[in-house]
Write a protein that binds this DNA or RNA. Structure first.
Lengths: 288, 288
DNA sequence: CACGGGATGGAACGTTTTTTCCATTTATTT
DNA sequence: AAATAAATGGAAAAAACGTTCCATCCCGTG
């Protein structure tokens, strides 16, 4: 586990040689230790000023530790930061490689393992990057809605289905806009003020979902979009937008993070509505 | 509430104008959104390369949003980072978020975080305990089936929906047994030898699903069960049984592990069938 | 099909930043 | 106290970088 980044190694060397260093270089050393996390952003001049030293002193410092100059040393810190700031930033690429990778002779389980692994990374990212304010706003919107419409087509339909199912355990009236019989429009007809639409869509965005969002806005209903990014067509037509970055390769898109987010959304909503979870799933004749 | 950093404001402006932007600038916009946290460290050239665009396009982008050039825009991101990174990051933020959500005990995001954590644990378990032989057998069974029936009710219906959707991208005939019009039996009527049924069910087990499995077995179709344990009623009526233990938080059953397993299953199947993933989702008029 | 406007990429330009060089100062040793 | 070695700061050289300009290309329009 203890990955010794080059930056760590460098800092240690600095500590060891510190006492043998000339006065100014000691200043630089102290400065580096204290501002270790911001060195990557700073210019030589800033650092020099920061420790009351001439710029060339900083360069000499770097050279004393075996680098060609300040820039090269700075790169070490940049890399270290990049490594720890995005431990799972490879998620997108990992899932891509799972799907794309045609390395022959791989067993089914191996593929599955890699896929699961990538999905785990996806959840890590979800946990790390969830937007508190927006999530809260989403929960509040749903809590305040009288009717909740849920819409997602094709890839996103399974998610919509789940949300609709879960919401049935609240007191809300829930409408899954499923387009059965081609009746998207008709199913949306009666959405109105005080209602909410949950729209799930990822590129390439389904036009039916976009249509639903426009209708919802025209009818003054609140719109919660679950999608990939703030850019893209959903942003304009939504009141709250929750981001889920699913790794995707070509047209195959992960859905575990989305599923997880939606469940989290429901749990938070249930909590807010003060449903105990037992209540949310009443046992009856038709249990699954 | 939270101070709107200039970076936030900028990102919002970008989101608003996004659609009106030329192609390359849209690339830049997307890149900025995805790499928001590392822009401050990067050089124009790196960013340009990162979005497959000429450096000058990045500069034009910055100018379009009112900055004199890239440097000035970059400073915005640097400042935003410095502002929120200097007071020991996660610690102070956590305190703030706890206080903010104190209206009724725990904030929505906190609940969500815990739920996501539980889901992560679930995926860990899934990865650790996946049964190689069974998984392989499951893939083989599906690969060899002519017709694939998919069934899950209530909680499991969303999963069934997804599987059915995914399988539509193979050459198989796929039937989602959805019970529309109460026609479970009728939808299963023509299952037979050489076909496969994928049954997803968790306790309390839906009787419709159990019924479907019995029918499938009587008709000599292969049955793949996705459930919680080897015990329970599905074991008796299935040829292959894949286990998923869902971690649960708040006494609420997760579905992310199940979703992940099913996607992994599909990817492995697609691999075996030698579908390239491009083929799996031909682009047409009805894209999502 | 010709035209115009905008988008794009290459290269030159100008600026900033880093690095090197050297004169000067400071410390150390004899 | 003189001599020598090391450290320091200023300034110039060099490099990197960002920016601007312009020719070309592409697309939509008339």
């Amino acid at each position: 586990m203890a990955k010794r980044s080059e930056a760590d190694a460098l800092m240690q060397r600095i500590a060891e040689e510190y006492e043998a260093l000339p006065r100014q270089l000691q200043c630089v050393a102290r400065y580096l230790e204290e501002h270790r996390s911001s060195i990557m952003v700073q210019r030589v001049g800033e650092i020099a000023e920061g420790c009351g030293v001439h710029a060339s002193a900083v360069v000499r410092f770097a050279q004393r530790f075996g680098y060609s100059g300040f820039s090269e040393m700075q790169a070490v810190f940049r890399d270290a930061w990049a490594a720890q700031a995005s431990p799972s930033r490879s998620y997108q690429q990992r899932i891509r490689s799972v799907i794309k990778g045609r390395t022959d002779g791989v067993s089914a389980v191996e593929i599955a393992s890699r896929f699961i692994d990538a999905s785990r990374a996806g959840l890590d990212e979800l946990a790390a990057e969830i937007d508190e304010a927006r999530f809260q706003k989403a929960v509040d919107m749903l809590a305040g809605a009288e009717n909740i419409y849920v819409m997602g087509v094709r890839r996103s339909f399974a998610i919509a289905t789940y949300i609709a199912y879960a919401l049935q355990h609240t007191q809300k009236r829930v409408h899954l806009v499923n387009g059965l019989g081609g009746m998207f429009r008709e199913q949306l007809r009666s959405i109105g003020k005080g209602d909410a639409l949950i729209a799930i869509s990822f590129p390439p965005f389904g036009k039916e979902t976009l249509y639903a969002m426009r209708v919802a806005q025209q009818h003054k209903a609140g719109v919660l979009a679950i999608t990939e990014s703030d850019l893209g067509p959903l942003a304009r037509h939504s009141d709250v937008l929750l981001k889920v970055k699913e790794g995707s390769a070509f047209a195959f898109r992960g859905l575990t993070s989305t599923m997880c987010l939606c469940q989290a959304l429901f749990v938070a909503l249930a909590y807010k509505l003060e449903l105990t979870v037992e209540e949310t799933i009443p046992r009856g004749e038709y249990d699954d």
